[in-house]
């Protein structure tokens, strides 16, 4: 490999993976991929499945585009990226349908969402097109995990307060309901996802003042 001189997990490469978890988080800082963060965070399980599929598509997409970066004509690069992502998503879906049909059923609705996920296109365009394969792989991994933890965090609060469950298991005991506790139906609806994202952004920025914009 050409990049053999640099250690596989050098400081720079580690940063590629850790930055997107906090300081350069795709959702809370770059505000990308908000659409899916709103749509599928009603239950943790769904958020998790979505995160795993984004992880797979993200890594392969980054690697493939990075491998072709010196061949792609710049005028049609967006179309090329789109084709790569779409082909990957369809391929993954076909494979799941054949070998893991139960997972495929859960995923069906997300397939379209993955293709349109701004984070994937954003990372292909911003990173993979200008970097070697290994850093691109790490970047894809880091961003997908950065996306995943926010998604699962939002889903955690929405599922807990919206239906009193975590991963489908009843957490809030029956006796609470008998005392008059009620699930907050507002949590299930999209506006509360937006507010939850905003609260996470708030917490993150009050902890790390560097993230606050000047105006």
């Amino acid at each position: 490999m050409a990049e053999k001189k640099e250690a596989l997990f050098s400081k720079k490469n580690r940063k590629l993976m850790t930055d997107p978890l906090d300081g350069a988080n795709p959702i809370s800082i770059q505000v990308l991929g908000i659409c899916s963060a709103l749509a599928i965070t009603v239950q943790i399980e769904q958020a998790f499945v979505m995160s795993v599929s984004v992880l797979a598509v993200m890594i392969f997409g980054n690697v493939i585009v990075s491998a072709m970066r010196n061949l792609i004509p710049s005028r049609i690069r967006i179309i090329v990226q789109l084709v790569v992502v779409a082909a990957l998503v369809i391929l993954v879906n076909e494979l799941l349908k054949a070998f893991l049909p139960d997972v495929s059923e859960k995923l069906s609705v997300f397939v379209g969402l993955i293709i349109t996920n701004c984070i994937i296109m954003g990372r292909l365009e911003a990173f993979a097109l200008g970097n070697k394969i290994w850093p691109s792989l790490l970047d894809g991994f880091g961003n997908a995990i950065g996306y995943a933890w926010i998604l699962v965090a939002i889903a955690f609060f929405r599922e807990l307060f919206g239906s009193g469950k975590i991963w489908g298991f009843q957490i809030i005991p029956e006796s609470f309901y008998e005392l008059g506790y009620m699930n907050n139906n507002m949590m299930i609806l999209p506006p509360m996802a937006l507010i939850t994202v905003a609260l996470i952004i708030w917490a993150q920025r009050s902890r790390n003042k560097d993230l606050i914009e000047e105006n």
Binding site: L71, I72, P73, I76, I79, V80, V83, A87, I90, L91, E94, L95, K97, A98
Partner: peptide, 20 residues
């Protein structure tokens, strides 16, 4: 480039779809 890409991707997906 566009033509080659479409043919390759098309063939790949067709093979995957038929094979599975």
């Amino acid at each position: 480039f566009a033509i080659v890409m479409v043919v390759v991707v098309g063939a790949l997906l067709a093979v995957a779809s038929q094979g599975l």
